[in-house]
Every structure is written in structure tokens, then in C-alpha cells.
Computed example of a mutant assay.
Amino acid sequence: MLTLDKIYHASFTLKKYIRPTDLIHAPKICPDSEIYLKTENLQITGSFKVRGACYKISQLTEEERSKGVIACSAGNHAQGVAMAAAINNIKALICLPDGAPISKVEATKSYGAEVCLVEGGYDEAYAKALELQAERGYTFIHPFDDDDVIAGQGTIGLELLESLPDMDAVIVPIGGGGLISGIAYVIKSLKPDVKVYGVQASGAPSMKTSLKEKKVCCLSHANTIADGIAVKQPGEITFDLCSKYVDEIVTVTEDEISTAILTLIEQQKLIAEGAGAVAVAAAMFGKLPIKGKKVVCLISGGNIDVTILSRIIKRGLLTSGRSCSLNIELIDKPGQLKGVSQIIADCGGNVISIHHERSNEGSDINGCFLRIELETRNYEHILEIRKALTEGGFKLQD
């Protein structure tokens, strides 16, 4: 059973395993609110998950340790279990979805754990882990639906109250619900006036759906760039705790997550994975009533594959109006490209690439098309450039 005593004990136990992460003021994230970032992306293993994994493994009996441990994960819990097992000289087998970022797979292996890649997502990995546990007798370390794991994650709540005792609210990512359950239990037990808000990806709203239906629900699919919270079904324990202690759960879109990742890189010099950025996305896009409030956004992890990061940055640039593409219909005669370039330059746009092609069947025989990729300041800047080109006599294709 989860108690404050257990969470305080977890805090004491974890001092030798983890680092206390900083709380950083981020005034530009949401100018109407006083935003702080709890940087669990800078935690050992790059995620908060190490807290719950280490505390759970520290509480195992000698018999359980001797059997070895098994876990399933989208990547971050895997690294936490692998590291904790290595510290305690315990054999570890981790079931990972075959689509997990390569960086998370390799990091898990680097701690000495055996990795089993499972076709599908988290839920398929979970089923495989239970199958192997039954076959081989391993001790199962659940990623979220376990009192000891939740207590480990709840130590973040103690740190928040110590670092920012006058905070008005905390915004927390939700996958299976272990993180927010621990934090919400601590905060509502010690300072019940503080609001606890949860955020899920719109493509995987399992806890939000469950609370709405007042029972644990299983989604037919979970599809999001925030792989760390792509969970089809929350836990029974976490569902009960969220029902009692969480004030509201909202969702954010893929574009909003991408924009939040980009904003954290540019403004705060912080790398967050998709799941780690959803709290910031919720604050940035006005999903919660936090105007004028002192609010903590929890950046839960920073383990993002660099190839995915490059795609997300590109998407974030498009979403925020920092880049755009223009399709311009021209008459194929000298000076047309010069005229277009001059207008863009006068407006302060920066051309990244140009593709020129002759017109196709059905268009003017003297026509051609120009596709230009631009760096821009914002959506207003894009409209300014489009207006200047139209006024200059050029025809833009939508």
C-alpha cells in the first residue's frame, strides 16, 4: 500500500542511486504564467524512471534477487531496471518494442541487461514479459502499476515541495500513470491546494478515457511520437490514485509536442523526448487554467533518438511558422526568379532550397512552377511574404 512513510523511505534510499534534478525558471515558455521546469531529462539514465526501478529493486528479497528480474518498457524503464540490476549484481531481461528508439535499446544493453525485442508496442512487450516470467521464474518489475515503483516516482513530489513550496500547480506527463500517481499522492497529502494536472498525447489518451468512463479502459491502438507514454491501458493502482488525486487531464497533438521540443531546445537549451515535452506543450498551447499561476512543468525524459529529433525539429519549425514552402506559378522567361528572390529578400525571408520545373499537361505552354523552401520568423512573416509576392504580380498555388 502506498503511504507517505514509504515515499520518504524511497527518498532516503534513492540518495545513493540518483541525482537531485534542478528546477529551472523558464519565463518565455508561457509569458502569462510563472513557469518552472523540473529537469528529470537530466536524471541518471535520462529519465525519472530510474527512481521507481531502483527503489523497487532495493526492496526485493534475496530469493527474488536470485531469480533475476524482468521488465517491459518503451525504453526509459528498461534503462532504470538495467542500471539498478547492474548495481545490485542481479540478472536482468528487458522486453522492448521493436520500434523503440535505437538509442534506448543500446543504452539498455550498455548496462548489461539482456534485451528481447518484441513486435508491436508497449502492450505487446508487456505480454511477452509476463510469458517469459512464467517460463523462467524471473521477478517482474512493473513499469507503473506497483506501489514501490510509484513511491520511487513520488519522491519528485517531495523535491518539488521543498524547492518551490509556494507553487500553484504541477503539470505531469501520463502514460500508465505511475509518475503522476506518486507526485499527486505526495502533493495532495502535504499541500492539497496545489493543483495536479496530467497530460497525454491525443493519440494515446488511455488514462483520460478511463477516468471519463470511470473504469480502466484499453484503447484499440496508441499512436504518438511520445513513445514513452504510448500506453493502451493504465494500471489498476494508478487509475485509483488518479481518480482520487488528479485534478484534470488534457491531451496535446503531435504538432504541439514537436513545437514544445523545439522551444525547449531553443529557449532552455534542453533536450526532451516526446513524452518529456507534453507538459510544456500543454502550458504553451493554453490547455490548462494556469494564467497568473506559479507552475511546474515536469520534463520526464530526454532519451530521444537523433534521427527522430531531426524530423521533430522540422515539424516544429513548420508548426510554429519558422519555415514554409511556397509554390509559385511563373511565365518561363528571363528575370522571373530574380524578381521572386528580390521580394523575399526585401521581406527578410531566407531561401533554403529552390526547385524549378516546366509546367505539366493542361497548364500554359510557357508556364513553369517554382517551389521555394524558406526560413521565416512566424506566421505573420509568412503572410507578409505571400502578400508581397502577390502584389508583385506572382501567382501562388495553395
Score class of each variant (00 low, 15 high):
V340S: 14
T307N: 12
V231Y: 01
I18T: 14
Y245A: 09
E114L: 03
L2D: 03
Q133W: 07
V115F: 03
I308E: 13
L117E: 04
S353M: 13
V340P: 01
G46A: 04
A84I: 05
S66H: 10
D98A: 15
K15S: 10
Y126W: 15
C30E: 05
I312Y: 01
M207S: 08
I249W: 01
P143G: 02
H142Q: 10
K67T: 09
N350Q: 13
I312L: 06
G176K: 03
L264H: 02
G367Y: 02
I304Y: 00
A230S: 10
K269S: 15
K395T: 13
P234D: 11
L389Q: 13
E135T: 11
E384C: 08
E329T: 09
H355M: 11
A283N: 04
S163I: 10
K49F: 05
T39C: 12
H9R: 14
L37I: 10
C30F: 14
I328T: 00
H25D: 07
C242N: 02
A92N: 05
N327L: 13
D332K: 08
M1N: 08
L211H: 03
N327V: 06
Q267Y: 15
Y197D: 02
R65W: 11
P205I: 15
S11L: 06
E62G: 06
K269C: 15
A84Q: 11
I304R: 00
T108S: 01
H381K: 09
I150Q: 00
D193W: 05
K244Y: 13
L318W: 12
E131D: 12
D22P: 14
G301V: 00
P165F: 12
A201T: 08
L23C: 08
A204D: 08
V306F: 11
G292S: 14
D166T: 06
G178H: 05
G177V: 07
G321E: 06
D147M: 09
C218Y: 13
G203D: 09
V340R: 01
V246I: 14
V278G: 01
L330F: 04
T45V: 03
E361P: 13
V186F: 03
K6T: 14
L117C: 11
I304A: 01
A84H: 05
A100M: 05
T263Y: 15
L164Q: 05
A283I: 07
